[in-house]
Each structure stands twice: as structure tokens, then as C-alpha cells.
């Protein structure tokens, strides 16, 4: 009796959780112009429509470029930061950690407005650079988290073994630590990429007239026009995100480890 109730509740709750995503997927393949349910037929017309719309293509290119650059930067900076945080003990580590991981807990809209004001003050006017730097700062903690998790998974005696075999700190880094850390670094890149690709609240302050990211383009579009082309572009965003998450998940099993 209690068990059936619980099962029923679960079914309803998961329908609630998935419904808004499912509806987007369904209408992206509809052939009508509205959102009357059920959709009148199957077609790819809205995807074809998108292919002809420059503002979506450019936004997608901007999003991908920003995400790629911010992720490369986040991994390049996050790897040494993780090596220090996960492997060394030093004074002031708490402060260093707070500064590096801070963007994770700070509401994005506040960092967004702070960066907008700061970039204007220092004369950094180009939106593309603004976006890359802003995203870099929010991606870095995610990169550090993934790479540190990878480092914690490497037996420290591997590094010690390398040292007893005659390798210096730097040689050990190159010959043992970095090769062992490859999955962690790949996961860090993917999670950074998702974080940047998904970002709305920092981007909204840093975009320029001709430099708009995809989520912001969708956001603006919703206010003007309400048709299944938004569903189609949303589907593309969903597929990209879920694809990246699955890849990162396959590499690390982080989520599995922490919640199972």
C-alpha cells in the first residue's frame, strides 16, 4: 500500500521533471507553426529554418569559440592549481582555495555585473574577449575540481617511486603524473566546456551587439517570437550538453561515485 503510493508519486515526479524537456524535443520535430498538442506531424522544417538563420549560426559559433578558449584556459590554469592544492601542504592554503574556488559559490549575476563594470573601467571593450575571460573565471573551479579528483585517484607512491628511480620533480610530472592524469584533464575540459556553453547570467552582461552566445540568443528570441524554431535550437543545445556530460561521465564516473 505504502509502496504503491511511493511508486506512483515517483512516476508523477519524474514526469514533472522531464516534461519541459520532452515537450521541447517533441515540438522541435513538428511541422506546424504553433504549440497545439499533439503536434500535427513530423518534419525537420524548423531545423532547416535554423540553418538559414545567420543570427543562430553566428551565436553558435561564438558559443563554441568562447567555450573552447575558456576551457583550454581553465585546464591550463587549473592543472597547476590542482597540483598545488591536491598534492602540497602550505601556509595560506585556505585563502588560495577560497580565491580559486570562489566563483563556484558566488551568484553569477553578481560576478557578471562586477566584470562588466571592471572591463569598462580598464578599457577592455571587445565583447568576445570579455566573454572568454568571464567564462574562464567561472570554468576554472570546475576544472580544478575534476583534475583534483583525478589526482586524488592517483596513488602518491607512483610519484615517490619515480623519485626513487632517479626522476626529478619536473621529470616525474611529465613522465608519470600528467600521463596518469589524462582522463581527469579530459573531464575537466568537458565540464568547463559545458559550464561555458550553458552560461547565461554572466554572458548576459558581457555580450555585444554582434557577439551573442547561443543561450542569450534563445533568451532574446523567446521575448520576440514564440515558435518551434526555439524548440529546434533548444534541442540542439540539449543534445550538445547531454553528449558532453555523458562523455565526461564515461571518463570519470564522478557523479556515480559521489551519489551511489
Amino acid at each position: 500500500m505504502g509502496k504503491a503510493l511511493l511508486t506512483g508519486y515517483n512516476a508523477l515526479a519524474y514526469i514533472f521533471l522531464l516534461a519541459p524537456i520532452a515537450i521541447v524535443l517533441v515540438f522541435s520535430f513538428s511541422d506546424g507553426a504553433g504549440f497545439a498538442f499533439p503536434p500535427s506531424g513530423f518534419s525537420l522544417r524548423w531545423f532547416r529554418y535554423l540553418a538559414g538563420r545567420d543570427e543562430f549560426i553566428t551565436a553558435a559559433v561564438v558559443s563554441l569559440q568562447v567555450a573552447a578558449l575558456a576551457s583550454i584556459g581553465a585546464v591550463a590554469l587549473g592543472t597547476p592549481a590542482s597540483l598545488a592544492l591536491a598534492r602540497e601542504r602550505f601556509r595560506g592554503k585556505g585563502v588560495v582555495e577560497a580565491v580559486l574556488m570562489g566563483p563556484l559559490v558566488l551568484p553569477g549575476i553578481i560576478l557578471g555585473i562586477a566584470l562588466l563594470q571592471y572591463f569598462t573601467a580598464i578599457g577592455l571593450t571587445r565583447s568576445f574577449e570579455r566573454l572568454v575571460l568571464g567564462h574562464l573565471v567561472v570554468c576554472m573551479p570546475y576544472a580544478i575540481r575534476s583534475i583534483s579528483a583525478g589526482l586524488y585517484g592517483i596513488d602518491p607512491s607512483l610519484e615517490e617511486a619515480s623519485r626513487t628511480l632517479g626522476a626529478s620533480h619536473w621529470r616525474t610530472l611529465r613522465r608519470v603524473v600528467l600521463p596518469q592524469l589524462r582522463p581527469g584533464i579530459a573531464a575537466a575540459f568537458l565540464f568547463s566546456f559545458i559550464t561555458s556553453f550553458d552560461n547565461v547570467v554572466i554572458s548576459i552582461y558581457l555580450i555585444g551587439a554582434d557577439t551573442v552566445t547561443l543561450p542569450i540568443r534563445i533568451l532574446n528570441y523567446i521575448e520576440w517570437q514564440f515558435d518551434p524554431s526555439i524548440a529546434a535550437i533548444s534541442t540542439i543545445v540539449l543534445v550538445v550538453t547531454i553528449g558532453l556530460v555523458s562523455a565526461a561521465e564515461a571518463l570519470t564516473g564522478v557523479i556515480r561515485k559521489t551519489t551511489m
Partner: peptide
């Protein structure tokens, strides 16, 4: 003298072989 320059051989409890 740093470990690397002591000319030692060491076998670790869990062997610490380089899996890559």
C-alpha cells in the same frame, strides 16, 4: 640529497607500477 640523486632502489607496498 634529494631522493632522485640518492641512487636507491625501492619496492613499494602496493608496487606503484606505472599503469600507463
Amino acid at each position: 640529497v634529494p631522493t632522485a640523486k640518492r641512487n636507491l632502489g625501492m619496492v613499494f607496498q602496493k608496487y606503484a607500477l606505472f599503469s600507463h
